[in-house]
Simulated assay, not measured.
Amino acid sequence: MKVESSLDLRYNIAAMYIAILREDIATPEQAFAILEEKGIKTAYTDEDVEDMTKLYEQGLCYEEIGRIYGLSKYTIRRRIERYRKKDLTDGNLKRSTRKIYR
């Protein structure tokens, strides 16, 4: 069992304050990136896009998902479409019954 030091707690609290106070921060990872002076995360993994796709299939609109990830609704739509096409060609993803509106 790992015990957090007071420095770890301060680091986590600082990230929380950044996430609360900055409007351009949408995820904890982005707040920690600011603390580590790496800048806001702009590259998203396939896992992130898979999560975006799941959120969309659960009924969230592109704009709502965009607010979560700090991206425009157009970017979200494009990433989901590319992800689905890639997985459909690989045979890993079944077609969603929900239509994508352009």
Rank of each mutant, 00 (worst) to 15 (best):
A15T: 04
I76Y: 00
I13Y: 14
P28V: 11
R82K: 12
E37T: 05
V49P: 00
R84Y: 01
T45N: 06
R82A: 09
E4H: 11
L35F: 02
M16L: 11
D87P: 01
E63D: 12
K94E: 09
L71C: 11
S96T: 14
E36D: 12
C61V: 10
N12A: 13
S72V: 08
M1P: 10
R98F: 12
S6A: 10
V49A: 08
Q58F: 10
M16G: 04
K73W: 06
I13E: 12
I34G: 00
S6I: 14
E57G: 06
T53S: 06
D51K: 08
Y69C: 09
D8C: 12
I80E: 00
T42Y: 04
R98C: 10
L88N: 13
A14L: 07
C61E: 00
I25R: 02
R67W: 13
D46Y: 03
R84E: 15
K41W: 02
V49W: 00
R98N: 12
M1G: 15
I34Q: 02
I65Q: 03
P28N: 13
D48H: 07
E50M: 05
T45L: 10
I13Q: 13
I76C: 01
I18E: 02
L93C: 07
S72I: 09
F32W: 03
G39S: 11
I40H: 01
K41C: 05
K41F: 01
R79V: 00
Y69T: 10
M52S: 08
I25L: 10
Y11P: 01
M1T: 15
R82E: 07
G59Y: 06
E64D: 15
E36C: 02
T45K: 09
K41D: 01
T75K: 05
I65N: 01
G59W: 07
A15L: 01
V49D: 03
L7C: 10
I34S: 04
I100Q: 14
R82Q: 10
I13L: 12
E50C: 04
Y69R: 09
R10Q: 15
D48N: 11
D51S: 05
L9K: 15
K38A: 07
A26G: 13
D90T: 03
K41I: 15
D24E: 15
R78T: 11
I25K: 03
E37V: 07
R78W: 03
A15F: 01
L55H: 07
K73M: 09
